[in-house]
Write a protein that binds this DNA or RNA. Structure first.
Lengths: 171, 171
DNA sequence: GACGAACCTTTGACATTTCAAATATCTGCT
DNA sequence: AGCAGATATTTGAAATGTCAAAGGTTCGTC
């Protein structure tokens, strides 16, 4: 049967007119995208299975975890790279579940600050430990030296992309 | 004003207990994730602005573009790394817009095959050309040699992750 | 030729995602 | 005071995303 493990082919077959002679930038991008998607989905699956949480919830709680005083929703939005409107719903649900608490500071009533509840801190600590373990597991076959090198190289990709955003023209 | 460009801090501040001495695997993952998110969002923005299309639509059309005979929805699902149910809606909308066409082959009535219409081919060709240009632009500051090297290195990440999926245990 | 297992797609309930428009609130200037 | 403009968050519409359950179809086998 034409049944091979299509798992490793996926997104990378985009565009590159069959001959596979596409620009290196495009090839790199497709591989980054598919790899990230693959790992994300695995993390999502495990977060759901073991903690009943979603990845965006985990991300959001991660930000609050290291800011014991909480963060304004706008700050949360920037740090998680999630739109404002999205943060609203995310926080709403986490609050309903009792992991996050919303407060309006005295000074400025436009602002809403979100912080983890005690239950939130406990849950996140457990998730973070598991999360780190999953990543070490999934990257177990990679040369440790290559991991650090990749981190650095990808930094240049990020910087380059940042410098060429359409929105970055003005500032 | 506390106004710096938070754009480059973002996700990478997850977990790593403030001291920044977290495991290399975690650091790499966070950087991959934030970089991919950054570039994805820019591509999304441009696809929308210039073509009124979404990234998932682009991905789906890309797969159909290189398979002139069309693909079964299940195949599409695997290649785009999108769930079956999701493909249904995606194809539905693209069909409503006239870019994709659904056909049930004679042999097997369980199957639905999607293929690009002529309008779909024309639109995609234009989008693909622009898309490739955007990537070259966004990666313009990277050493060309590093791009190829990164492609290869990330391949090992993908392979490692693939070998450690919870679902891959049996087969 | 009927039955059950396997296969393919759709459906339904939710969560997340984006953008743009609407609300509130604060600030600075007159 | 009072108002225009900047800030902060919410809301609403539409698309995407997941999973699990439900529908049809086909296949192998008895």
């Amino acid at each position: 049967m034409a049944e091979a493990e299509a798992i490793d082919i996926d997104l990378e077959i985009i565009v590159q007119g069959a001959h596979g002679r596409s620009k290196p930038e495009l090839r790199l991008w497709l591989r980054m995208l598919s790899t990230t998607k693959l790992i994300s989905q695995e993390i999502r699956r495990r977060l759901r299975a073991e903690f009943g949480a979603t990845l965006p919830q985990f991300d959001l709680m991660a930000q609050l975890y290291r800011e014991k005083d909480g963060l304004r929703l706008g700050e949360l939005s920037k740090r998680t790279m999630v739109t404002n409107g999205n943060v609203t719903g995310l926080v709403e649900r986490l609050e309903a579940d009792g992991y996050v608490q919303r407060v309006t500071p005295d000074g400025d009533r436009r602002v809403t600050v979100a912080k983890l509840t005690e239950a939130g801190v406990i849950l996140f600590a457990a998730m973070a430990a598991a999360h780190e373990g999953w990543l070490q597991d999934m990257m177990a076959d990679i040369d440790p030296h290559a991991i650090a090198a990749l981190w650095s190289e990808i930094g240049t990709v990020k910087t380059s992309a940042n410098n060429h955003l359409a929105a970055a023209a003005f500032e």
